[in-house]
Design a protein around this nucleic acid. Structure first.
Lengths: 243, 243
DNA sequence: CGGTACCTTGACGAGCATCAAACCCTGTGG
DNA sequence: CCACAGGGTTTGATGCTCGTCAAGGTACCG
């Protein structure tokens, strides 16, 4: 099991620094590690989860299902993300979380976790911070889906995914990161049909903005993609706490 | 100035109960009251606000502006809502807040507020709770905008506004609440053009689901509107803290 | 009375959904 | 070894939903 004191994620710049004592306190909260295969449901909408997770590696999706079978992907889940907060503060989850690749997660017990928060104002503040960041990310997605045409939306989503993956060290070769999602996931995230998403991806590829094939996303020129994405990317270097 | 110990909002069921001491502690944090006219910008995207507000009366919108002048209304602001949290925990606001009617707001000093949170784990928890609820609301809006056709989206928005307004005592006559927004606000919230929003409202009116005219929203049958809104309203009676 | 802000309605066309089918690749079993 | 099925990707054809353009209506205000 990976110890928080030597967490491979913490060295990346997007995460707030942690004192030695804080790392050791987190380690005491850690109940274990969870490894799951692609397609595993980690948290189900409506459930009252007893566990909270921090993603160590792998990717997933947060989504809501509608009664008619439609699905809205609310956000993508990448290493460093904290999942299950809703079940922690509200009574139950309002969305589901599912893996799309192999994932390794840090497991915390809900009760122990909030017990710790009681005595640690700084960590409690971090939790609010995390929730506020999540809201901001969803609000940006809403803005893209609500106001932009398909090509801009898809460009925005790819840009966001690339930046985030790169920020946690997944950019092995320059301009290239793993991207294990299906086109259907992206379509459900941006409110587009699968067919139109596919056409839009081809369009972006032919314009040399981004190529997503065989589980890898290649972006030759971030600035050009950012221009096509329509929103000045306010939080390229947005810092966040890591728990 | 209204004292927190006799806050007119707290008697409504959607808010978490508060102990007498808590009310008095909040009162000490209260820096004053702010009254604004319609169309006033309370918080501007990119600003580092020194104040946080709780809405006592009136309505407004939270929105993001795009470089090309498009606007996404992220959420509507109603009595009991807490605004400015983002500027509190992140460095600056990621959206703007503007009044659409006369508004009265409770003003808190940012520093004093977070100082208080340090010593009050329960209130700090409430803050996280609020942020999580906001995220949930935005995620539901994203789901509606991303997956539903225009009529369903508009029905959903009206249902949400009606429920929320009624929950803070604005339902003077049965089935009727004030609704001071412009059609453009609703259009910008649901990612529709003004023209199509107008047609959709007429459609809902002719189907007897909801009538919104002259600043008043009338809903003859909540259940029928809820059916038209496409999402089982998970949080009709969702409780929230009031700060 | 002209000006502005908002609501309303008509006409037209574009963007995107839908339907349909083919083409991978991988795994499975005869 | 090949037949087959299943999950994902790709492409074409068709038409509906919704955006855009345009104009007119109403109320309010200086």
């Amino acid at each position: 099991m990976i110890k928080c004191t030597q967490c491979p994620l913490r060295r990346f710049g997007i995460f707030e620094p942690f004192s030695r004592e804080d790392e050791e306190a987190m380690l005491r909260l850690k109940a274990g590690e969870l490894v799951v295969a692609p397609g595993t449901t980690l948290l189900r909408e409506g459930s009252k989860a007893a566990q909270l997770y921090t993603v160590l590696s792998g990717m997933g999706v947060r989504y809501k299902l509608l009664s008619d079978g439609q699905r809205q992907v609310v956000n993508f889940v990448l290493p460093g993300d904290f999942v299950g907060l809703q079940a922690g503060v509200m009574d139950e989850m309002r969305h589901s979380v599912e893996s799309v690749s192999d994932m390794r997660l840090c497991v915390f017990d809900r009760l122990a976790f909030f017990g710790f928060m009681q005595n640690s104002p700084e960590r409690a503040f971090d939790l609010t911070w995390l929730a506020a960041i999540e809201e901001h990310l969803v609000a940006e997605a809403l803005t893209s889906v609500g106001q932009q045409p398909a090509s801009t939306r898809v460009a925005w989503a790819l840009l966001r995914l690339f930046r985030r993956a790169a920020a946690v060290g997944l950019e092995r070769e320059p301009g290239r990161v793993p991207m294990p999602f299906r086109q259907q996931d992206l379509a459900d995230a941006m409110g587009l049909s699968l067919v139109h998403t596919n056409r839009t991806l081809r369009d972006l590829r032919e314009r040399g903005l981004a190529t997503w094939q065989e589980g890898e996303l290649t972006v030759p020129d971030l600035d050009r993609l950012a221009t096509a994405a329509g929103m000045e990317d306010s939080d390229g270097g947005l810092c966040r706490p890591l728990l």
